[in-house]
Amino acid sequence: MKTTLDELLALTRVVDSGSITAAAEQLGQTTSGVSRALARLEEKLGVTLLRRTTRRLELTEEGSVFLVQARRIIAAVEAAEEQMTLRRQVPSGLLRVNAASPFMLHVLVPLVEGFRARYPQVELELNSDDLIIDLLEQRTDLAIRIGALRDSSLHARLLATTRIRILASPAYLAEHGTPQTVADLQRHSLIGFTQPRSLNLWPLRSPHDEDIEIIPSLRASSGETIRHLALAGAGLVRLSDFMTEQDRASGALVEVLADLNLPRLQPINAVYHRNTALSARIACFLDYLSERLEGQAWVA
């Protein structure tokens, strides 16, 4: 890479401050030093980035395009430096974590004691909610979200992906038969979610390889409730591997229509607002989760 970080900083500070003199003061450099950095940058790129007049500096079209990338590079470097700084600190204080009930019960709860042993000064507050919440309104520092993300204003870190399967209890199948085709589902009791609609799209092969929207005869708002309904023999369900691993291993739930199941993977993301005061707590919690989730049987 020909361009240096100092040259990128010179460009962004000049644009933000409006003058080479002001930028030099902010950077603790001489005016001539900043001016030379800009000249070197333009020479390396082979374009004019700034038009200089007697009264002001103005970005050229090429300068505007390059500035966007320059800011991203500087932000990435600052974020990397911040992460290294955070890892030298001892995380402490309150961390509020929100997750849907199934993920809280099947994934997070078994990991809590190990996290507390490693980071005894972090106080955890665990809250469950089966609907997508507003982090600020609910005073939540970190939320675990399963499926496609919608809010682009949040920072996100992918923790894992998991498969989705169609399942039923052996007792239900013994009484009602095992479906062999998608059309057979019309004869069965289908258990779905009250909302959102996307959770009632079952990943089953169709003429266009699109997920099939089912019409549930029984609905619930919580995935954990739906799991217990399936265990009780109430019907067929669509659930993620992370919450049914033990049920499938024990035979309490069995997969149906496996040969028609499309390879759909659900992303599991941690989302949060950027907050330097919380960063050490968030970073250590996410690092611990990533470490412990690696190699889990349900991770696809």
Score class of each variant (00 low, 15 high):
179 P>S: 10
162 T>Q: 06
261 N>M: 14
191 I>M: 12
268 I>G: 04
181 T>E: 07
251 G>A: 08
281 R>S: 13
208 H>E: 11
221 S>I: 05
288 Y>I: 09
154 L>G: 02
183 A>D: 14
252 A>G: 09
265 L>P: 07
198 S>E: 11
287 D>I: 00
237 V>L: 15
175 E>K: 11
201 L>G: 03
196 P>W: 03
175 E>S: 09
186 Q>V: 13
263 P>I: 11
209 D>A: 13
186 Q>Y: 04
246 Q>A: 15
193 F>I: 04
152 S>Y: 05
152 S>H: 10
282 I>L: 02
212 I>R: 12
205 R>G: 05
224 E>W: 15
251 G>Q: 10
182 V>Q: 11
189 S>H: 08
289 L>Y: 00
282 I>M: 01
166 I>L: 15
164 I>L: 15
222 S>T: 06
286 L>S: 01
185 L>H: 01
183 A>R: 12
273 H>I: 07
289 L>Q: 01
295 G>S: 05
247 D>T: 13
249 A>G: 01
263 P>M: 09
189 S>R: 12
259 D>Q: 12
297 A>G: 00
183 A>K: 11
171 A>H: 15
195 Q>V: 06
169 S>G: 05
188 H>S: 01
161 T>C: 09
161 T>A: 09
255 E>W: 00
165 R>K: 05
210 E>W: 07
283 A>H: 13
195 Q>F: 04
292 R>T: 01
266 Q>D: 12
216 P>Q: 12
261 N>Y: 10
215 I>T: 14
171 A>R: 15
207 P>R: 03
296 Q>A: 13
221 S>G: 11
160 A>Y: 05
217 S>T: 15
158 L>G: 04
157 R>F: 06
174 A>V: 08
192 G>V: 10
249 A>D: 11
250 S>A: 14
169 S>R: 06
189 S>M: 11
261 N>Q: 15
192 G>W: 12
223 G>M: 01
183 A>F: 03
179 P>Q: 08
171 A>W: 08
245 E>P: 02
190 L>F: 03
197 R>Y: 07
210 E>G: 07
221 S>C: 03
260 L>V: 08
271 V>R: 03
182 V>Y: 01
263 P>W: 08
182 V>L: 14
245 E>C: 15
295 G>T: 02
164 I>H: 09
284 C>H: 02
179 P>N: 07
271 V>C: 04
177 G>Y: 11
178 T>I: 14
217 S>I: 04
269 N>M: 02
200 N>E: 14
291 E>C: 08
164 I>A: 14
267 P>G: 06
247 D>C: 15
178 T>Y: 01
155 H>T: 07
297 A>E: 08
163 R>W: 06
170 P>W: 03
266 Q>G: 00
273 H>K: 08
246 Q>S: 15
246 Q>R: 14
282 I>N: 01
195 Q>E: 13
228 H>Q: 13
174 A>E: 13
253 L>G: 02
211 D>Q: 12
161 T>M: 13
246 Q>E: 14
225 T>Q: 07
282 I>T: 05
295 G>H: 08
159 L>Y: 00
241 D>Q: 13
261 N>D: 14
151 D>I: 08
221 S>W: 07
